[in-house]
Each structure stands twice: as C-alpha cells, then as structure tokens.
Amino acid sequence: GEDLPLPPGWSVDWTMRGRKYYIDHNTNTTHWSHPLESGPSSG
C-alpha cells in the first residue's frame, strides 16, 4: 500500500528475510500490516 505516516510511538523495521513489519513501542507489539491500513477498530 501507500507509505502512510506512522502514529506516535511506532517504527518500521525489516526481518532478516527483508520483510517489512511495524513496531508499536506503546504496547511493545509487532504487526505485519500498517496500523492505519487495517480496518476501523473500536476502542
């Protein structure tokens, strides 16, 4: 998808195989999909 801006506290990194993933430092979790690309989340 597009390179959307990341929310505060997020960063992007790549695996050893070159796969892009996103790090949420607020909750110390990692995600394969961009936080703003996922569907609407409630709460």
Rank of each mutant, 00 (worst) to 15 (best):
L36Y: 09
E2M: 09
W32V: 04
S38Q: 12
G43R: 11
I23A: 01
D13A: 15
S41H: 10
H25T: 07
W14M: 12
P8Q: 07
S42V: 14
E2R: 09
H25W: 12
D3V: 09
I23Y: 08
G18W: 05
S42N: 13
L4F: 13
P40N: 10
G18V: 02
V12T: 07
E37F: 11
G43H: 10
E37Y: 11
T15S: 06
E2L: 09
M16Q: 15
H34D: 02
V12H: 06
H25M: 07
S11K: 06
S11N: 05
N28A: 07
D24G: 01
G39W: 11
S33R: 14
N26L: 07
I23E: 02
T15A: 03
H34R: 05
P5I: 07
L36R: 06
K20P: 08
G39F: 13
W10F: 01
V12L: 07
P8W: 05
P35R: 01
T15H: 06
P7G: 01
Y21G: 03
Y21R: 05
W10G: 00
L36M: 12
T30V: 14
L6R: 14
W14S: 09
M16W: 13
S42F: 14
W10D: 00
H31N: 03
D13F: 11
G9K: 03
D24I: 00
G18N: 04
E2H: 09
S41N: 10
S33G: 08
V12W: 10
E37H: 08
D3I: 10
S11V: 08
S33L: 13
H25S: 08
L36P: 05
W14E: 11
W32E: 04
T27W: 02
I23T: 07
G9Y: 02
T29R: 06
M16K: 15
E37T: 09
S42R: 13
G39M: 11
E2G: 09
D24W: 02
T29Q: 07
Y22M: 00
G39H: 10
T30Y: 14
W32T: 05
I23P: 00
G1D: 11
L4T: 14
D13Y: 14
R19C: 15
N26F: 06
P8M: 06
R19I: 15
S11W: 02
W32L: 05
L36K: 06
E37D: 10
S41L: 13
P5G: 09
S41V: 13
G9S: 02
G9C: 14
E2F: 09
H31T: 06
W14L: 10
N28L: 05
S33Y: 12
T27D: 03
G9M: 02
Y22W: 08
M16S: 15
W10N: 00
D13K: 14
N28V: 03
P7L: 02
Y21M: 07
D13W: 12
P8R: 05
G1F: 10
P40A: 12
S38D: 10
S42K: 14
P7W: 01
T29D: 03
N26Y: 07
P8T: 05
E37N: 09
T27V: 01
S33V: 14
M16R: 15
G39A: 14
P5L: 12
P8E: 08
G39K: 13
S41I: 10
E37Q: 12
H31D: 01
N28C: 15
S11F: 04
S38H: 09
T29N: 03
H25D: 04
G1V: 11
R19T: 14
L4S: 12
Y22F: 08
H25P: 02
D24M: 01
G43T: 13
H31I: 03
H25Y: 07
W10K: 02
W10Q: 00
S41R: 11
Y21I: 10
V12Y: 12
P7E: 01
Y21W: 03
G43D: 10
H25Q: 07
D3C: 14
T30K: 13
D24H: 04
P40W: 11
R19V: 14
P40I: 11
G39P: 14
S33E: 12
R17T: 15
T30M: 12
I23M: 05
E37K: 12
H25R: 06
Y22T: 01
V12I: 10
S42Q: 12
L4Y: 09
S38I: 12
Y22P: 00
I23H: 04
P8H: 06
G18E: 03
R19M: 11
P5C: 02
P40S: 13
D24Q: 02
P8S: 07
D24Y: 01
Y21T: 02
W32D: 04
H34E: 02
P40T: 11
S11Y: 04
Y22S: 00
L6Q: 03
S33K: 14
T27M: 04
G1A: 12
D3P: 08
G43S: 10
L4V: 12
L6T: 01
P35M: 02
N28S: 07
D13H: 15
D3H: 09
S42I: 11
S38T: 12
D3F: 08
S33I: 13
T15M: 03
R17L: 15
L6H: 02
P40Q: 13
S41F: 06
L4G: 14
T15I: 04
D13M: 13
L36D: 06
T29A: 02
W14F: 15
S42P: 11
S41Q: 14
G18R: 03
L4W: 13
S41D: 09
P40G: 14
L6M: 05
H25E: 06
H31M: 04
K20F: 04
N28F: 04
P7I: 00
R19S: 08
P5Q: 10
T29W: 01
W10L: 01
D24R: 01
S42D: 13
P8D: 08
G39D: 09
G18I: 04
N26M: 07
G1C: 15
T15D: 15
N28E: 07
L6S: 00
P5K: 07
P40C: 15
N28G: 13
H31P: 00
S42G: 13
Y22G: 00
S33A: 09
Y21N: 00
G39E: 10
G1M: 10
R17Y: 15
P35W: 03
S11A: 08
I23K: 04
G1Y: 10
P40M: 13
N26P: 01
H25V: 04
L4K: 09
T29F: 02
W14T: 14
S42H: 12
G43C: 13
T27N: 07
D13P: 00
N28P: 02
L4H: 08
P7A: 01
P5N: 13
G1N: 12
S38E: 13
W14D: 07
T29K: 06
H31F: 06
P40R: 11
L6W: 01
R17Q: 15
V12G: 05
I23F: 07
S11L: 04
S41E: 10
P35F: 03
D24P: 00
P40H: 11
S38L: 12
D3E: 13
G9N: 07
T30E: 07
N28K: 08
V12P: 07
E37V: 13
W14N: 08
P7S: 00
M16F: 13
K20D: 03
N26S: 08
S41A: 13
P7K: 00
P35N: 02
G43Y: 11
W32H: 03
G1Q: 10
M16A: 15
W32R: 03
P7N: 00
E37S: 12
D24T: 01
N26W: 05
P35H: 02
S38M: 11
L4N: 12
R19W: 10
G43V: 11
P5F: 07
P5R: 08
W32P: 04
T29C: 06
P7V: 00
Y21V: 07
I23G: 01
W32M: 05
N28R: 07
Y22R: 00
D24L: 02
T27E: 02
E2Q: 10
S11D: 09
G43W: 11
N28T: 05
T30L: 13
Y21K: 05
M16C: 15
Y21Q: 03
T30G: 03
G43P: 11
L4I: 09
N28Q: 08
W32S: 04
D24E: 02
G1H: 10
E37R: 10
S11C: 15
G39N: 12
H31W: 11
G18D: 04
S33N: 14
H34L: 09
P5D: 15
H25N: 09
P8G: 03
W10Y: 01
Y22I: 00
I23L: 06
H25A: 08
E37A: 13
L36F: 10
Y22Q: 00
D3M: 08
G18T: 01
D3A: 08
I23W: 07
T30A: 09
G43I: 10
K20M: 09
W14P: 07
G43L: 12
W32F: 07
S11H: 07
T15R: 01
H25I: 05
T30Q: 07
W14I: 14
G39V: 13
S41G: 12
P7Q: 00
L6A: 00
W32A: 04
I23S: 03
S11R: 05
K20S: 02
N26D: 04
